[in-house]
């Protein structure tokens, strides 16, 4: 054993990871891998997986699981200047098994949001943990870009609420409470393998419980390896502006 480090098995992207010895056409194989992030060209040990591709897979699954099962640290909202709040889920276990409770604000949060958030604002941005706590890493990038974009259209944002154990339907609970015009929820997505940090922006014009899901517009796959959060913030700003102008959202919003 030496002091040198063992190489990081996740350092090589799945597009470039290649283990097939004596491939019939290695350059062609490698070129073909560029069209997909599927784990191909991984070779085998007997009929089973190659050790390195298997460890890479395990590392990626670990990323996804940690994103889901880690709680947002106490004080996250206060430290980031957000108004703290929580859904009716008491803990992660309830959150995962009771999506209905994740769509409703608890009484304390309701009272706080009612007292502190801007009423009838043109745009209200909400931050939520959703199914990935790790996705909150995008907030410091997406939020200023979103604010600058909105400022360019003459729209100022009021205080931003944060909701712990948050499902997308929380928008329908919050919207009517503060008479919001357009609500934009930045929330962690259900992680794919190795995309633990992926975030979505859900947007709706005057959301409420009676609106169908198709009333929401979504921009998903926001993370370092997908749509960069800064760019997504700029794009979301232009969508929010259109929703305000057209007083529509979701599938009815002209594309």
């Amino acid at each position: 054993m030496s002091l040198e480090q063992v190489p990081d098995v996740t350092a090589v992207s799945t597009k470039d990871e290649f283990h097939v010895p004596n491939a019939h056409n290695e350059p062609g194989y490698r070129a073909m891998k560029q069209y997909t992030v599927a784990r191909i060209g991984v070779w085998r040990a007997g009929p089973r997986y190659n050790t390195w591709s298997q460890l890479h897979f395990r590392a990626d699954h670990a990323t996804a699981q940690d994103a889901v099962f880690t709680d947002v640290p106490d004080g996250y909202a206060e430290e980031n200047g957000f108004m703290p709040g929580q859904s009716q889920c008491a803990n992660k276990e309830v959150y995962l098994t009771r999506p209905d409770l994740g769509r409703k604000l608890d009484e304390e949060s309701k009272a706080r949001f009612d007292a502190t958030l801007t009423k009838s604002a043109p745009v209200t941005v909400v931050v939520g943990d959703g199914l990935s706590t790790s996705a909150l890493v995008n907030i410091p990038k997406i939020l200023p870009a979103l604010k600058l974009g909105l400022a360019g259209y003459g729209i100022e944002l009021g205080p931003i609420p944060f909701v712990k154990y948050c499902r997308v339907g929380i928008m329908d609970d919050l919207g009517p409470l503060i008479d919001a015009n357009v609500v934009c929820l930045l929330v962690g997505e259900r992680p794919g393998l190795a995309t633990g940090e992926s975030m979505s922006a859900y947007m709706a014009y005057r959301p409420n419980r009676e609106r169908p899901e198709s009333w929401r517009t979504v921009v998903s796959n926001i993370h370092a390896g997908g749509t960069p959060p800064v760019e997504a913030g700029a794009h979301v700003a232009s969508l929010l502006k259109r929703m305000l102008d057209e007083q529509l959202s979701g599938v009815e919003l002209s594309l």
Partner: peptide, 14 residues
């Protein structure tokens, strides 16, 4: 090259 022109453009527009 990288996907950032909208954010950059909005910053320029400001």
């Amino acid at each position: 090259e990288e996907d950032m022109a909208k954010a950059l453009g909005q910053a320029i527009r400001a």
